[in-house]
Nucleic acid binder design. Structure first.
Lengths: 229, 229
DNA sequence: TTTATATTCAATAAGTCTGTTGAATGATAG
DNA sequence: CTATCATTCAACAGACTTATTGAATATAAA
């Protein structure tokens, strides 16, 4: 096999992966699955796609080795094949943001315009947190929270927020965060809390950036509401 | 704009990037461009594609913001828009290798079977290099070598190898390396040197892995042949 | 000028991808 | 053992992609 043939074959396989990523619905599915495993119907509901279409996209993702399925009664539960996959989606996002002016525009105008208040940086949060001036809320699903979260953050997944909102104090500022710049959970949480007259801002970065900044993270489950647990 | 609409718009833009990556020839073009800027004809020759086809693929990549062009006489010189782009291609490769059994097979059978001798690990190379037992040859283009290279490595880009081969001693083992697991330059170099009766092995990893292992790297230009310059 | 050359453009035919149907599986519940 | 429900499958039309032509641009050399 010549170098050229090897290259061909190898890149043809890489293209299988890239092909699987090359559709907005499939990227959205991967982003949802990064938040936790889900069955077909739930996914189709969340994205507003037909069940058949959702199923077909999921099968394409599976064929490319990006997700795996497990039967559970008459449901099939899809999940990401590995964490590398969601890192890859983020990587594409970063390149798109750097390369396509249109993405930056959306990110700035839409994501950022939602905040009348500017998002909080890791630095600023570190200071606020040290003074116990704020309550930090991690709106990701429980498994992700358990894997790693900001010190003192309480976990209230978006699904549970309406129900558990009353646990949050009205007299301190709330800082919400989720998975990073393209994770829209924090935005939804912010909207919901503001409607109930909480003072809320959102952390701009994610746990991985927090960690990359050399700041400590916690593991496991915390239930206390007081701050640096 | 609702969260769902933002998601849609954002992921549609991400899909533009993924779409551009979703073809083996375009991935191969990016890999070549990662080695240095090139004009259309050269690229078409290296990949064995028609000029028209190459041009169209390059325009697609440009449209997705992954490469940029610059006119130079009647040629157009294409180059990667940023280093992020080649990181993204590597990222896809890593996911493909993890997710698709067929890729691992190719990597093992083809890339690795070329070596009758197993490739050298960073650890082993560090030992060999300390004893000045080997000559290390970096076969990447000069700019990449200048940016960072292994201590004591000489730079002989693949293009120049046939011409400059005589600078290499016949009585010491040669270790070649290039950009990482999917870089085929080192393989070509190894074949060529073996045809001329050199003892050659190839480093399994790349400069970035070397650095990640906590080992030192050198910058700038080295011309000496003796080892730890 | 005219000629050569590198690249792009435009048109085409063959192939691939998508979303939508409605029917087929296959597991559970009654 | 029948009904129900979640999912997949199969088939189709409409839209994109791709490689291949040969013609069109636009720069440089003669």
């Amino acid at each position: 096999m010549s170098t050229r043939e090897i290259r061909q074959t190898l890149f043809a396989q890489f293209a299988v992966v890239a092909d699987a990523l090359a559709h907005s619905s499939r990227l959205a599915l991967l982003e949802l699955l990064a938040q936790g495993e889900r069955d077909v119907e739930t996914l189709s509901g969340l994205l507003g796609l037909s069940v058949a279409s959702t199923s077909q996209h999921l099968q394409r993702l599976k064929h490319a080795g990006l997700v795996s399925v497990q039967r559970h009664g008459r449901r099939r539960i899809y999940r990401l094949a590995s964490d590398e996959v969601s890192a890859l989606v983020l990587n594409i996002g970063r390149v798109a943001e750097a390369s396509l002016a249109s993405v930056e525009k959306i990110v700035n105008q839409q994501l950022r315009a939602q905040d009348e208040l500017p998002p909080v940086s890791t630095d600023e949060l570190a200071r606020l947190s040290a003074r116990r001036a704020v309550v930090i809320v991690d709106v990701r699903p429980a498994e992700e929270y358990a894997a790693a979260h900001l010190p003192g953050a309480v976990n209230i997944p978006l699904d549970a927020l309406r129900r558990e909102m009353s646990r949050l104090p009205q007299d301190r500022e709330i800082i919400v965060y989720c998975r990073g710049p393209y994770c829209l959970l924090a935005l939804d949480a912010m909207r919901m809390l503001r409607r109930h007259h909480y003072r809320v801002r959102r952390l701009e970065e994610s746990v991985s950036e927090w960690r990359r900044a050399g700041l400590p993270v916690e593991h496991g489950i915390t239930t206390a509401m007081t701050g640096s647990a």
